[in-house]
Amino acid sequence: MTWELFLLFFQQSLMSGLVTGSIYALLALAMVMIFNTTDVPNFGQGEIFMVASYIALVLLVFASVPYLVMIPLTLAAVFFGGAIFQRLVLKRVALARGASVNLVIATLGLSYFLKGVMRQTGIAEVPRSFPALFPTDSVSIGMATATVQDFAILGLALAAMAAFFLFFHFTRTGRAMRAVGMNPRAAILVGVDIERMRWLVWGLSSAIAALAGILISPKLLMTADMGIVVILGFAAAIVGGFTSLPGAVVGGFVIGIVENMVGLFVSSKAIVVAPFLAIMLVLLLRPQGLLGGKATAKKV
């Protein structure tokens, strides 16, 4: 490989990695939020992401709702969907037997249920493409090329992350959510309504997954199995330590860039397996993640 080619590949993978990485960061953020407050890794997130993308598609293409209405409508619908799942199913599961294994299995159930329902509607029968929200003219930066749409994705994702940062640090509700994540009992003692926080977090997290879906769908082929993308969000969350919100964001960009580098420098076939190897490597070498702080064991 010549130096020129190396530079080109390097810059290109950095550029594309930042764009896809911003989506993984959003997905990881959604995952970590839920894990922190309800102690369950949400295996159904991929399907929430998938269903949200289809809701957006149906509103946009079949009901010809304008963009500016479609986005809030989709986010709201998915917010309530997530909140209802927490209220109706997870709360009951936690009451029946609080073991985290049972909660995980319930989210797996959600995942299959949503996928089956989506297949049943027939919309997902043929692979579809999502109309681009932004122009796809290409722009060059250095040696790398990207589209206007790519910049819009990156920009909007960063804006959403900034909004969440502000929300978690400066609003009462956001701080209460973090408190529940740190120590649920202490949070109850200082007057946090923990049940309300739980469904709020599920709603918010689902809405973030929906936003990620709306942003990235124009770059994907839509099928009922598109939720598989969320595995990269999982990988990002793990790289970030699984309990740290900033870690999730950093992890998202790391995974995005690594994925693109593997694709350009190794082979496009290796892309598929890269996230799994990343998950295993990080868990083996640094189980607490890059920003996870010191490893701690739960007491009996």
Binding site: R92, A96, R97, L103, G109, Y112, K115, Q120
Partner: peptide, 21 residues
């Protein structure tokens, strides 16, 4: 396939809700 997924998903959720053991 779609029915299989719906039924599986529903069984998993219902079982965890009402028959955790």
């Amino acid at each position: 396939l779609s029915f299989q997924e719906i039924i599986y998903g529903a069984i998993l959720m219902l079982c965890m809700m009402y028959a955790p053991r």
